[in-house]
Design a protein around this nucleic acid. Structure first.
Lengths: 111, 111
DNA sequence: CCGTATCCGATAAGATACTG
DNA sequence: CAGTATCTTATCGGATACGG
């Protein structure tokens, strides 16, 4: 773990799943294919701009797939790519540790 | 994975190991006890201010231990706590995925 | 419906100087 | 040696308006 490669590969992962919204988006997409409007409904606090931006970045990283139906009104579906699904185990490990940490904080900072 | 708890626990983990410097600091501390100046030498690009700040946050989160030797010149040693060592497996998983992702990017974006 | 474009505030991070 | 204090800059995220 003490090497240089380690540092930059962790940073790479943080770029892909870090930030305020990407974990949440990925979380929802693990439930299956979602339309843009569905994702927006699932995350009432995200702005359209941020949702679009984060989805584009995930798409560029090959994590999600974007399927556009050329029709009026437009319809766009997002889903995890096969490759993107591999990020789930990373998120799972992060979730498990974070949950334990939350509980630790709870028990050590009462009052 | 589709629940609310998941979202916030991933965010908790990102708070603790996220950001530009914390993974790097933790990486170096897995090698053993380090003095402030050693850490600074290991990370030439970090400023003293950032190093101090990040170390304080890690200490507040119970990840690292700070031992001050009251002497002149001062000596302060940092080390992972037993609890802090549990973050290693999270970083490892992130590192493995990030490394694969780097290789994927390499092979799919030549030119 | 699914975006893009602009502008703006908040926060993260860096440069530099100074101190017990 | 191991920090603080202050100031500046860069990046992230949000609000709002508009467009195909």
């Amino acid at each position: 773990m003490g090497d240089m490669q380690f540092k930059s590969s962790v940073e790479t992962t943080l770029k892909v799943v870090g930030g305020k919204w990407k974990p949440v988006i990925l979380c929802h997409l693990t439930e299956g294919i979602k339309r843009f409007s569905e994702l927006k409904r699932d995350m009432p606090d995200i702005t359209q701009k941020m949702l679009t931006q984060q989805l584009r970045e995930l798409e560029d990283d090959g994590i999600i797939d974007r399927k556009v139906y050329t029709q009026v009104p437009p319809k766009v579906e997002y889903s995890l790519t096969e490759y993107g699904a591999t990020i789930k185990e990373v998120l799972d490990v992060m979730s498990v540790w974070g949950l334990k940490h939350q509980q630790k904080i709870q028990s050590s900072a009462p009052r």
